[in-house]
């Protein structure tokens, strides 16, 4: 046998470890909740997680693409808010039809993302700064368009918002949940089965190598920001379906929740490693913490942030340890 051939023992792939940890954590949290509060055990608690956080899930999926390339997108919260404001404004004050509004909102999101991606790739402005400008720009647009938070009574929007899809076991989910899950499936497919998706990973692993291997790095880098803008706009629409209002001050700090969900889901912030499924788990963990704190009743809402911070710390240290052992 040649010296190069090495027989490898099987061990769980280390890059899956953070994701497995997140899953264990999620199940444990659910088990704890179920043991403490009888109502917690019902399936609807889990479905409510999806209902309440479907918009964040979609935003976090877009963020996953950006982070996989080694970038970051701070503008997502502002783009979400812009989408809600645009929807409310066009539907209530200008009498646009629902489909037209939806198309426009999604186009605006994608366009903003493309702009930021172009700044990052072609003018070599750091992702942090470029998307920060995007954050201010989109939030500024929100406030310029409207300073109020009008409610929406468009027939299409309200029917989407109020339709409950029954599930066995006396449970139900909303249309938004279905939309979010479709996004998850598409994103998973794109990342795993398309050249674009694999290039996203390659760029995150080593941009220089990706260039030398002849991959379409420029197109990919701009695309992930466009995609993130699109997902943020879609997330904004889902938020509209959830709240039926357009608030220029909504979704402040969403970028942090999205980044936290992505990191807790096992995606490495320097890029190249992570899964859409992990991000789903990450969002569910954030939601589960909030739900537990709500059920407890004596704990105040700020514990959510503190616990998320602690979790972030735990997962980042875990990633460090894995990276160190791999070396």
């Amino acid at each position: 046998m040649s010296t190069l051939t090495r027989v490898k023992e099987y061990r769980p792939q280390q890059r899956h470890l953070p994701m497995i940890a997140t899953l264990v954590l999620l199940v444990a949290a659910y088990g704890y909740g179920a043991s403490q509060y009888p109502a917690f055990g019902s399936g609807q608690v889990v479905f409510n997680l999806f209902i309440n956080y479907s918009w964040l899930l979609v935003v976090a999926i877009g963020m996953t693409f950006v982070i996989l390339t080694g970038g970051i997108d701070l503008s997502v919260g502002s783009v979400v808010a812009l989408s809600t404001v645009l929807s409310a404004e066009l539907l209530t004050k200008h009498g646009w039809s629902a489909p037209a509004v939806i198309v426009l909102v999604l186009a605006v999101g994608a366009l903003l993302g493309t702009g930021m991606g172009a700044l990052i790739h072609y003018f070599e402005i750091q992702p942090f700064i470029a998307t920060l400008v995007g954050l201010f720009f989109a939030r500024g647009l929100c406030l310029t368009i409207s300073t109020e938070a009008p409610s929406i009574d468009n027939a299409v929007f309200t029917s989407i918002a109020q339709t409950q899809i029954p599930l066995p076991g006396d449970s139900h989910v909303s249309i938004s949940v279905v939309i979010a899950l479709v996004v998850v499936v598409i994103a998973g497919y794109v990342l795993h089965y398309t050249r674009f998706g694999r290039t996203v990973y390659a760029v995150g692993g080593s941009e220089q190598s990706a260039v030398l291997m002849g991959l379409k790095v420029a197109r990919t880098k701009v695309s992930v920001y466009a995609l993130s803008g699109f997902c943020s706009a879609l997330g904004g629409l889902l938020l509209v379906f959830y709240k039926l209002s357009g608030d220029p001050l909504s979704a402040i700090g969403t970028e942090l929740d999205a980044i936290a969900a992505v990191v807790i889901g096992g995606t490495i912030l320097s890029g190249g490693s992570g899964y859409v499924v992990g991000t789903v788990l990450g969002v569910l963990v954030l939601g589960m913490i909030q739900t537990l704190i709500d059920f407890d009743g004596t704990l105040s809402s700020w514990w959510t942030k503190i616990v998320i911070g602690a979790l972030l710390f735990g997962f980042i240290v875990l990633q460090r340890l894995i990276a160190r052992r791999a070396r």
Partner: peptide, 21 residues
């Protein structure tokens, strides 16, 4: 190259075929 210009985060098979999968 001396410093192997591949992506360490991808699988062996992918590194051979990425871009021409």
């Amino acid at each position: 190259y001396q410093e192997v210009n591949l992506c360490p985060n991808l699988s062996v098979a992918e590194n051979i075929f990425i871009g021409r999968e």
